[in-house]
Design a protein around this nucleic acid. Structure first.
Length: 456
RNA sequence: GCCGGCGUAGCUCAGCUUGGCAGAGCAACGGUCUUUUAAACCGAUGGUCCAGGGUUCAAAUCCCUGCGCCGGCACCA
């Protein structure tokens, strides 16, 4: 750091702006390599910009690797070609400096496609040294706290996040093709509903009013179905005031979609299509593996009633909360291949439609893969009288001290009283889906800036 | 919140068991070298051993407390 600051002053004294601008690249490193193709030399010059990563000096010549958003390419500088002043500038560069170079492409004796540097511009002087070139950056704490360094030092990390974007784009494309309308609904909410979680509390100063950060998207999207949007979806951040783990970050990304005149059987088919589309977007075969365990995402997925699964694994017949507890304790982790667990107890599903043939259960499913939940969906409850009764039941639990029981939402009830068409709804945890499709072990590996405690 | 592991140079890591001068490679610095690619070679430099306290003639090393990171549990339908 001290050395680099002194170098900065030396550069300025020599009339070189260490934070210059105006350089316009004509090619990426990948395009430059393609321009050379199988040839030995191009007559055309390329202009490349990026970060100088490593430098190999050989007296009157010098090599360096330039990294840009597309990849890396080798640079060659010769004193006879560049002239003494520019050559000294090149030789004096530090790993991490952002530079622009111009020159033709050629192939070295060893066959490496290389830019023959005919001119050089220092664009940004780096004051901090990069992590080691061979071992790279492994320290997990620095990787998460200083993601910018991780992204420089570990290009495969960039690829994970590019894949994340491709997956989300693929999901949007499929929903758009099916005439779902993407919408945005409030993050700041008076009533944090639609899920079962402790919310974050914040405060609006000029209204002098407490507001919550949303824990789900559901209730506003269903209001939009009341309003006449027949197919809506939102990809958005939700916030849950809970502990951290390799599968939990306090803010994470949900996809929720709602379709009028559909039920949970239709939604299961949609989920299968979304899984196939997202695997394709990620460039993953459907028969794949996660952290060394084989998993086959080829539809159709097994469908099994929760009560049947619990009976199969425990020999016990149960309903209500007990059924769900038995499922979570004894069954969920054992479901490795994709499985739609269907027909949840009504007690834990205050927004779902009861089964006509057995009102102890609702038309709800979760998609479980490798013991983890990837989707949660149901045929929505549209009966406003039943919905009010469910909320009142939850309010009683809340009064009894259950901080996660669903809060009363009078405005949502009013909307349902105007008439919510029969519909199916779906929620997908995007981060966990990306983990699966990029084979990353921790949710922090698919969130650019995960929540951390303050630095020591 | 509870339990366990980890924290040493900018980076990657030894050293800790059994207390005795703070180490290596890479980066950075000086030098040789005009097609190398983990460039090579020569030289010199670089430390709050996470922080604080204790035991001891002597602590990176043993003990206690705190902080951070990782994993597990709890929480998270």
């Amino acid at each position: 750091m001290v050395d680099r600051r002194e170098k900065l002053e030396r550069l300025r004294a020599a009339g070189i702006d260490p934070y210059s601008r105006g350089f316009k690249p004509t090619h990426t490193t990948v395009e430059a390599r393609a321009l050379l193709g199988e040839g030995d030399r191009t007559t055309e010059e390329v202009a490349l910009a990026g970060r100088m990563m490593v430098k190999r000096l050989h007296g009157g010549s010098a090599f360096a690797d330039l990294q840009d958003g597309a990849g890396r390419i080798q640079l060659f500088a010769g004193r006879d070609i560049l002239g003494p002043a520019a050559f000294e500038l090149f030789a004096d560069l530090d790993p991490g400096d952002v530079i622009g170079v111009k020159g033709p492409m050629f192939r070295t004796r060893r066959g490496e496609p290389t830019v023959e540097v005919h001119s050089l511009q220092l664009l940004t002087k780096a004051l901090r040294p990069l992590p080691e070139k061979w071992h790279g950056l492994k320290d997990i704490e620095i990787r998460y706290r200083q993601r910018y360094v991780d992204l420089i030092a570990n290009p495969e990390v960039r690829e994970v996040f590019r894949t994340r974007t491709r997956i989300i784009t693929g999901l949007r494309t499929l929903l758009d093709e099916r005439r779902f309308v993407e919408v945005e609904t409030p993050v700041l909410q008076e009533v944090p509903g639609g899920g079962h979680a402790r919310p974050f509390l914040t405060h609006h100063n000029s209204l002098d009013r407490d507001l919550y950060l949303r824990i789900a998207l559901e209730l506003h999207l269903k209001r939009l179905l009341v309003g006449g949007f027949e197919r809506v979806y939102e990809v958005g951040r939700v916030f849950r005031n809970e502990g951290l783990s390799p599968r939990h970050n306090p803010e994470f990304t949900m996809l929720e979609c709602y379709e009028a005149y559909a039920d949970y059987d239709d939604v299961m088919k949609l989920v299968e299509d979304l899984m196939v589309a997202s695997a394709k977007s990620a460039g993953r075969p459907l028969a794949t593996a996660y952290q060394g365990e084989e998993v086959d995402l080829t539809p159709p997925y097994r469908r099994a009633r929760m009560a049947d699964l619990v009976l199969e694994h425990t020999g016990k017949q149960a309903v209500g909360n007990e059924l769900n507890d038995l499922f979570e304790e004894h069954v969920e982790a054992k479901l490795r291949q994709p499985t739609f667990v269907i027909d949840y107890p009504i007690e834990i599903s205050p927004l779902a439609r009861p089964r006509a043939d057995d009102p102890r259960f609702v038309e709800r499913f979760e998609l479980i893969i490798l013991g983890r939940e990837y989707a949660n969906a149901f045929t929505e409850l549209t009966d406003p009288v039943d919905q009010r009764a469910r909320f009142e039941g939850q309010a009683a639990k809340r009064a009894a001290g259950d901080v996660e029981a669903h809060p009363m939402d009078e405005d949502f009830l009013r909307a349902v009283e105007y008439g919510l068409p029969p519909c199916g709804g779906l929620g997908v945890g995007i981060d966990r889906l990306v983990m699966l499709l990029t084979d990353q072990p921790s949710i922090r590996d698919v969130i650019l800036f995960p929540v951390m405690k303050p630095e020591a």
